[in-house]
């Protein structure tokens, strides 16, 4: 290589600050979401003095903390180019399995570990269907959503399991506070920080981006894309299991119908936060901000006394608007950069 004669150094080296080089588009979106959330919050504080209080803030955080753990898994799954519609059922499954074992006399900590393991197993079965048989994750997880929900109903006989006898040390995960901060929020923050960091910096997770961006090119780079997909699906289900166990501790009950429709909220949050259904893009921070936006909107609608019947419609429209706006901005940017690039 050293023999090459004319070296026009047209390549810009990393002169820019590091945080920008981490994908400025992604950062722009995250900044945009923060601004939207801030603007909405300020507007709401005029409408309701209660809005910008620590109590309301904490209530909102609490409301999406546990679901936020599922969002982390879903975002990673979307990045690898798959999807999981079964998360709501799997959350419930961990809860029901853990609760059932506890009532059968098993130590609650072991019971909840088995619950999480059972969720991971559901993920492994789905992952095998996707990587070995070659089915699409949408169909596989749609089937799993129904099957697992059916299992939850079968295990409980359709009635909620009452877990009031859970020891306080266990309930602490879901109901306790440390220095006034709910444990749930702390767990959520830890999970988010760990996975956000890993997704940006770990080589293992870089392979997730490669696989999702172009599976064939990833294969042609020596990456075992099947393995990558397998572990992403298992991870998403396992995180759903973790969420299920926290819910169990928080509610002191295992309801077999819990988590119906959760997948939609979770996917919506990830997509608003920048994950693409085509795979290859997305960030944890963005997805969490997406979740926060949905939560602020919900909270606003409640404080504004908007009829419950209208709330879903409005949330759906916000999802559509956010995704459409993003797509339009993106495709404009792309045509602008692509066409003259050849000139």
């Amino acid at each position: 290589m050293a023999t090459m004669s004319d070296k026009k150094l047209d390549v810009s080296l990393s002169s820019e600050p590091r945080w920008i080089s981490w994908g400025s588009v992604g950062n722009m979106r995250e900044l945009g979401l923060i601004l939207i959330i801030a603007a909405l919050s300020i507007a709401m504080s005029f409408a309701s003095p209660y809005f910008l209080t620590w109590n309301n803030f904490r209530a909102m955080l609490m409301s999406f903390s546990v679901e936020g753990i599922v969002v982390v898994g879903m975002t990673i799954l979307l990045i690898v180019g798959a999807i999981d519609l079964s998360v709501g059922s799997v959350v419930c499954f961990a809860m029901v399995v853990g609760g059932y074992l506890f009532l059968a006399g098993v130590d609650p900590w072991i019971a909840c570990l088995v619950g999480i393991g059972a969720s991971g197993l559901v993920g492994a079965v789905m992952a095998l269907c996707v990587t070995r048989i070659g089915l699409h994750s949408f169909i596989v997880s749609l089937a799993a959503m129904v099957i697992v929900r059916g299992l939850c109903l079968a295990i409980t006989g359709g009635t909620p399991l009452s877990l009031f006898s859970l020891p306080p040390s266990f309930k602490f995960i879901g109901q306790g506070n440390i220095y006034g901060l709910p444990v749930v929020i702390i767990i959520f923050a830890v999970v988010v920080l760990i996975f956000d960091f890993l997704l940006r910096r770990a080589t293992v997770f870089r392979k997730v981006f490669y696989t999702g961006s172009n599976e064939k090119a990833a294969t042609y780079s020596g990456i075992r894309t099947d393995r990558v997909k397998f572990w992403c699906i298992v991870l998403c289900s396992t995180l759903s299991g973790v969420a299920g166990v926290i819910y169990m501790a928080r509610f002191g009950a295992a309801t077999p119908t819990f988590g119906v429709g959760m997948e939609l909220n979770v996917i919506a949050a990830a997509v608003i936060g920048g994950a693409s259904l085509k795979g290859g893009s997305g960030t944890i921070l963005g997805a969490i901000l997406g979740m926060a936006l949905l939560s602020v909107v919900s909270s606003s609608l409640i404080l504004l006394d908007v009829s419950v019947y209208w709330q879903d419609a409005i949330r759906g429209m916000i999802l559509l608007a956010a995704v459409a706006l993003d797509h339009l901005l993106h495709s404009r940017k792309r045509t602008r950069t692509e066409k003259p690039a050849k000139g």
Binding site: K7, D10, V11, S12, G23
Partner: peptide, 15 residues
């Protein structure tokens, strides 16, 4: 940057 320069790659930014 190194490989790009040796191949005379023309790009705005490596990002």
């Amino acid at each position: 940057g190194k490989l790009g320069a040796s191949l005379n790659l023309k790009c705005g930014s490596l990002s």
